[in-house]
Simulated assay, not measured.
Amino acid sequence: MSLLEAGLVVLAGIAAGTINTVVGSGTLITFPTLLAFGVPPVTANVSNAIGLVPGSVSGAVGYRRELGGQRARVLRLASGTFLGALAGAVLLLVLPASAFEAIVPALILLGLVLVVCQPRLSAWVAARHAHLGGVPENGAPWVWPAVLLVGVYCGYFGAAQGVLMMAVLGIGVDDTLQRLNGVKNVLAALGNGVAGLVFVLAAFDTVDWTVVALIAAGSVIGGQLGAGVGRRLPPWLLRTVIVMVGAVALVVLLA
């Protein structure tokens, strides 16, 4: 890899770290960049997943203020993400890529619809739980299984996982989008970390550590930039950004 290509990979990492913190579709920037520079697809996917872990952690740290008072919620949902990401990473190693290709665009489209309809659906969920004293602190009963499924997707590929996670949390958990975005960043960091560890242990020879280092350096910077930008967005604008990024992700994957 030339010096110019290395610099462009770092810039892609910065962009991916920023977008992942605000929304969560950074893989759609780094993965095609690596392919364009001749990195084999499997190596690109595995190395990208590992390289984005530090950026996810950086974004989660950047949102530490919004995470205040959510310890129990994060720990409960983290168990679902952990199990799901572990399963997804194993599936990536044992199943052909075609196994998930058909369902990934459908999942992203579903996530976009849910994000757009989130205010009305959240009100409906709250009304359904009103006779029980409101939505439980850690979310409606279906939230944990949904987080588990998003974790599976995160471990397998992860592009636009943030769109799906924000749709689940926004509808099933009674809290502000900014606080839920903080939770999303923690879960994304955990999911990427679990998948990255599986790839290191089971597919060490396919990892390009130069690529990992370049993406990691960029994504850490991007994580901090994303935290600064994301927390300034009002709910309607954050929702709009999520939908726009998710729509681009859908177009790219379909193309």
Rank of each mutant, 00 (worst) to 15 (best):
L3S: 12
L3D: 01
G7I: 10
I14M: 11
A15K: 06
T18E: 08
N20W: 06
G24Q: 12
P32G: 15
P32N: 12
T33E: 08
L34K: 05
P40R: 14
N45A: 15
N45Y: 04
V46T: 03
S47D: 03
N48K: 12
N48E: 05
A49E: 02
I50A: 08
P54E: 04
P54M: 06
S56E: 05
S56H: 04
V61T: 09
G62N: 07
R65H: 15
L67S: 11
L67K: 08
L67A: 10
L67N: 11
G68M: 14
G69T: 10
R71S: 14
R76N: 02
R76K: 09
L77A: 09
A78V: 08
S79V: 07
G80R: 01
G80H: 01
L83G: 08
G88S: 09
L91C: 07
L91W: 01
L95E: 03
A99R: 04
I103A: 10
P105R: 03
L107K: 05
I108F: 07
L109Q: 06
L110H: 02
L112E: 14
L114M: 14
C117H: 00
Q118E: 15
Q118I: 11
R120I: 02
A123D: 13
A123V: 03
A127L: 00
H129T: 01
G133P: 05
V135Q: 05
A140F: 02
A140W: 01
P141S: 01
W142R: 04
P145A: 00
V147I: 08
L149R: 04
V152Y: 01
M165W: 12
L169E: 02
D174M: 12
L177Y: 09
Q178D: 13
R179Q: 14
K184F: 09
A189N: 00
N192G: 05
G193Y: 01
V194M: 07
V200G: 05
V200L: 13
L201V: 10
L201S: 10
D205K: 11
V207I: 12
T210L: 11
V211E: 00
V212G: 01
A216F: 00
S219W: 03
G226R: 02
G230K: 02
R232F: 04
P235T: 04
W236L: 11
W236T: 13
L237E: 10
R239I: 07
V241Q: 13
V243Y: 15
M244I: 15
G246F: 07
A247V: 14
V248G: 10
A249P: 13
L253H: 03
